[in-house]
Design a protein around this nucleic acid. Structure first.
Lengths: 153, 153
DNA sequence: TTGATATCATTTGCATACGAATGAATTTGA
DNA sequence: TCAAATTCATTCGTATGCAAATGATATCAA
């Protein structure tokens, strides 16, 4: 083995991963796939609502009337995104909109009776979705996962 | 307390969560937020590529020439999605397309010299992104997280 | 061989997701 | 008080992401 070969070996030993970047082991890729898998499980249980739509309904059920942007911040959606979600829920009669009487900038969002029925009917199913998503994890692993990422804002 | 009240209490005790569904504790919500956070960290480090675009480049760098659909399955994107990503990379001169000489259905994708340079320049940064995303976790927690979700397909 | 299947890619339609720009209304601060 | 800054909502543009339909090509099987 030449001196040059030895030097190469040493370099490889010092930085073993410089030349092999494994996409499948990067957090971003794993998060993207885990999210895809969850959306798929969700769709298999609840065909007529998307996860963001259900999130909006569930949060409205929890907190009652709020402004559109406020709701958005509660469910981690920016103003542009939440508008689209609410528009579609409104078109389906699950929420209704009204103007804030004092602050004329605000658009208040409320569940309709139909929307309330839908949430209450779907919440048990949503619990099953969470369960099924966590199924490949042991109870302890699931607990760690939930705790860790729940902390993140 | 009436008999009816007692019955209600009992029901509540048996199913303590029936009436309080906490969106912030559901896996889907947590996954969505964790993914959002990662995309934000990615954008702060690599402004001119999205995570899916970088994934395509990194995988091409890893496996070399492949068909568009094959690449899609390697990076977990369906045919329609990968087409858009590859189109944009092609428009920027980072990949080039050619027809498979035998199987005329296939569209072969390759890195250009510029694309190869870009990937190799960005891989160290991508490692930093993974590190920063996992920063709030201890080494052991990060290992658990990676192992668990890496298993998922 | 040829008819049924399967695969590869494209297109369309819909639903997030976010940055940036805009306009209306409110709040702040000098 | 009144100009500056902030907040709420909308709109536009761009980029995933997926289902479904379509067309072209390949493969399989009778």
């Amino acid at each position: 083995m030449s001196a040059e070969d030895v030097k190469l070996k040493l370099v490889e030993a010092e930085e073993p991963d410089e030349n092999d970047y494994r996409l499948q082991e990067q957090v971003g890729f794993i998060l993207r796939k885990a999210h895809q898998r969850h959306v798929s499980i969700f769709a298999a249980h609840i065909a007529d609502l998307t996860p963001p739509q259900f999130a909006a309904l569930a949060k409205l059920h929890d907190v009652g009337e709020t402004s559109q942007n406020q709701l958005g911040s509660l469910i981690a959606m920016d103003a542009a995104t939440v508008k689209g979600v609410i528009d579609r829920l409104k078109a389906r009669g699950l929420v209704e909109l009204s103007k804030h009487e004092v602050d004329k900038r605000r658009l208040l969002v409320n569940l309709t009776a139909e929307g309330r029925d839908a949430v209450e009917r779907l919440i048990p199913i949503a619990r099953e979705i969470t369960e099924e998503t966590l199924a490949p994890l042991s109870a302890k692993e699931a607990a760690i996962f939930m705790r860790l990422w729940a902390m993140r804002g």
